[in-house]
Design a protein around this nucleic acid. Structure first.
Lengths: 125, 125
DNA sequence: TGACTATATTCCTGTTAAAGTATGTAGATT
DNA sequence: AATCTACATACTTTAACAGGAATATAGTCA
């Protein structure tokens, strides 16, 4: 039952928040840190957990490791990600994360932004 | 995040099979035993786990304790139960459970069935 | 090469949980 | 009252996991 693995990944609040962000955009670890306001080791280990169970994929770009949802997803995963998105709409935690992500994207992509150059994770995808 | 509790309940195969059956009908512990072919203590403890997190409700009827999904469900739970049902359609384990449940219901409800009397859990609901 | 940045891994600790064995309990039956 | 049936709980063992602190590594830049 592949389903169980999906739910194991879903059953931690930090991982849920990570997955919620990934339904919006790919992200590198430091941006997860910033949006979720959690220590690097915590983020990194939850990402490793998700990666070991094929819920995320990685791509290196210079010093960054860009995390994204798998390009090819099983029907079960697709359904559950959609369901998760429906559930996050009303929850304050997810909404706040969403706002912080939007602000981070704006900051990084404005002309004088910290990551305004070619190395901007939001532009790599 | 109530969502996490839902996923914690969903992240064990036995509990998933229990919940899948409950989306079809209410059941007593001995019927879970029969359909899932698992020891009583295992079923009982997983039901206690679900009950402690408000994923199932109980009703006593003589010697039986009838388990069912909560009559009032949060939007999150409703969405995830629906998603679970969608995911179970293709999985062989759930399909087999479904068949065993159907056979059990038939056996219990035929005129000379073991539980053909007023005490039939399938008739209490 | 050496320093720096972003990220991963190892080690440790406490917590949760899964499964089995044995035992307890509430209600029904005799 | 004694027994039976259906179910629950306590206890034990083992494993998984979460979090923090410290350390390692891979790529970049001067």
């Amino acid at each position: 039952m592949e389903l169980v693995q999906i739910y194991q990944c879903f059953c931690d609040p930090t991982r849920l928040r990570i997955l919620h962000l990934l339904t919006q955009t790919s992200l590198c670890v430091c941006h997860f840190q910033e949006v979720l306001d959690e220590p690097q080791v915590k983020i990194s280990k939850h990402l490793a957990y998700l990666r070991a169970r094929d819920l995320v994929e990685t791509k290196r770009s210079g010093n960054w490791i860009i995390y994204s949802l798998p390009s090819r997803r099983s029907a079960e995963l697709e359904l559950n990600l959609q369901c998760l998105q429906d559930c996050t709409v009303t929850d304050p935690v997810f909404r706040k994360d969403q706002q912080r992500l939007t602000r981070l994207q704006a900051k990084c992509c404005e002309p004088a932004g910290v990551f305004a150059k070619e190395s901007n994770p939001f532009k790599i995808q």
